[in-house]
Design a protein around this nucleic acid. Structure first.
Length: 529
RNA sequence: GUCUCCAUCGUCUAACGGUUAGGACAUCAGGUUUUCAUCCUGGUAAUAUGGGUUCGAUUCCCGUUGGAGAUGCCA
């Protein structure tokens, strides 16, 4: 059977970086296996899902070139009848029951099956004991075993689990006297009878576990006595995530579920749901989380963790995909900068890391710089021009001048937002950096030299780098300054900044008129006394 | 509290049970006879901790510590 995976985000606001990483891994896996990559939009949370968020999501996926198969995507809201039908099926099979636990009306709960033969991966783990607090009575019913555990300070602690967790249950009191034997009352309990047992101190039972093989994390096991029955339909009649998710995965014939770490615990329940719904559970692979620079999970407020922000800061889609692929995964041969094809070829879930990964903006930025550097000149200019146009100073510019600036600044561009610093090429008088002025425009010798340079500039016919270099060198020497010592003062006087491309190339692009004007301006206004 | 999982330089990561524990980003020093960037050279920097198993442990097992997730009529 060919591989079918899905990305199933809920469109609530911006697209989170951790979320899109899951999409990338699914996409990579699907392509590596020659399978299908599906998109399912889990928009059942009517209060938080918005059309704008859906649009944002689609936009982001298109930007990152994460194309999906079988368009249009499956919208979960269109599947509600199927979800509800599944709930009815479970109800009819006795795998679900109605309960008014929260007091809001009757909800439908999925019952972890007591007879586990249907469920793959369930095994008996041997006898087990759980201490319970005698002050709180133990209640045994078809809904589960309700009790209070004992905290380290001897106080009652919240406890309770599904009935299936307690095979061969015997409840004992502090004197070890038997209070209740489940096997004597199993049919009554299943039929709905509730037993309330005061003064219980101990639960003795045969522990059962459910195990599944996680493609990234390995074998995962959980005891049934730490599982609770789950609400699958709310009292208002709407299906809950667990049900909807599983039913949709069945209808979309998903073979591998690759999702965030935070779903591991749900997996055990989902496998049971698949089984009770008569479907073969898919394979699972859980991705580690991405955490922020503080090592904490990204909260909804971590603005810089949104994919859209990386786009507006001028990161390239390919660079972002490349970097994100490397968060929690590595090909194993020291390659880092990789094309899509190389990533697809090398990607396996088995090599995915088990622990959380921290996002490193600097490394992303460096990688982005590498991608920009290898852009063909024409592509770079085209993109850079678009960026220039987004700035106030870039609305009306000389295209020929801009083209020259692009060529000059290409290797210096790490992210396109850096282009904000190109303003001095285009305006009349640049913004002067005070620190730079203080450092470079205070030496009287240099100032005198700049003044003489200004006069020479005025007299020049051609104003290109080759002409300027010897002139500046001569002026430097004439002033008694060391080689190149006039370059920085000249740069600050003309550009306002101490950093930039080669000064002679910069002067040439600026042209005689502007250079002279700025030199005059700086000498008149910016010299530090 | 209980359950599940995780742990190699600051960060991302590599290392069939045998390596001077490798690479990249960041950082530091130097070079590319002007700054910044690119490029080149070199340096600092890690197996959380205590026990086992083994001739030999980053690797396997157990404990501890630390971290994350789950424990919702959120997804």
């Amino acid at each position: 059977m060919s591989v079918r995976v899905r990305f199933a985000p809920s469109p609530t606001g911006q697209v989170h970086i951790g979320n899109i990483r899951a999409a990338i891994f699914n996409w990579l896996f699907a392509h590596h296996e020659g399978g299908s990559f599906l998109l399912r939009i889990e928009d059942t949370d009517l209060e938080r899902s918005t059309p704008e968020a859906i649009a944002t999501l689609l936009e982001v996926m298109e930007w990152l070139k994460l194309d999906f198969d079988e368009k249009p995507p499956l919208y979960q809201t269109s599947q509600v009848q199927k979800h509800l039908a599944a709930a009815q099926q479970l109800l009819a099979q006795g795998d679900a029951y109605k309960d008014n636990k929260g007091g809001n009306g009757e909800a439908i709960l999925f019952r972890i099956p007591f007879d586990t033969a249907r469920v793959p991966g369930v095994a008996e783990a041997g006898p087990a004991e759980t201490l319970v607090h005698p002050e709180v009575p133990v209640v045994v019913s078809h809904k589960g075993v309700d009790y209070a555990g004992v905290s380290s300070k001897g106080k009652p602690a919240p406890g309770g689990a599904t009935l299936a967790g307690f095979l061969n249950l015997v409840v004992k009191d502090t004197q070890d006297n038997t209070l209740f034997t489940l096997n004597d009352h199993l049919d009554e309990v299943k039929a709905g009878k509730e037993f309330t047992l005061p003064n219980a101190a101990k639960l003795c039972f045969t522990r059962r576990t459910i195990t599944y093989h996680d493609i990234v994390k390995g074998d995962m096991t959980k005891p049934l006595d730490s599982l609770k029955d789950v609400v699958i339909v709310r009292s208002d009649g709407s299906p809950v995530f667990h049900l909807a998710n599983v039913v949709d995965d069945i209808t979309q014939k998903v073979t591998h579920i690759i999702r965030g770490d935070d779903h591991v615990e749900n997996t055990f329940k989902h496998i049971m749901l698949f089984a009770c719904l008569g479907a073969q559970p898919p394979q699972y692979g859980h991705l580690p989380m991405i955490v922020n620079a503080a090592g904490k999970p990204y909260s909804k407020r971590d603005g810089d963790a949104f994919v859209g922000d990386f786009r507006t800061k001028g990161y390239l889609a390919d660079a972002l995909v490349n970097y994100l692929s490397l968060l929690g995964w590595a090909p194993g041969d020291n390659r880092e900068k990789m094309t899509r094809d190389e990533l697809v070829e090398a990607f396996t879930l088995e090599r995915v890391q088990h622990g959380a990964a921290q996002m490193d903006i600097q490394k992303l930025t460096n990688l982005n710089g590498l991608y920009i550097a290898e852009m063909p000149e024409d592509d770079f200019r085209k993109t850079a021009l678009e960026w220039i146009a987004t700035f106030d100073w870039g609305k009306t510019i000389d295209e020929a001048l801009a083209a020259k600036v692009c060529t000059l600044m290409h290797s210096r561009t790490k992210v396109f937002a850096d282009i904000a610093q190109w303003e001095y090429f285009f305006n009349d008088i640049p913004a002067y950096d005070e620190k730079a002025c203080t450092k470079q425009l205070k030496d009287p010798t240099a100032i005198t030299a700049l003044k003489s340079l200004l006069e020479q500039f005025k007299a020049l016919d051609s104003f290109d780098a080759a002409t300027l270099e010897p002139i500046v060198a001569a002026a430097t020497e004439a002033a008694g300054l060391g080689h190149g010592k006039l370059n920085q003062p000249l740069r600050v006087a003309v550009t306002g900044s101490a950093i930039g491309a080669g000064i002679f190339e910069t002067l040439e692009i600026l042209g005689k008129e502007k250079s002279v004007k700025r030199l005059e301006y700086a000498l008149a206004n910016k010299v530090v006394q």
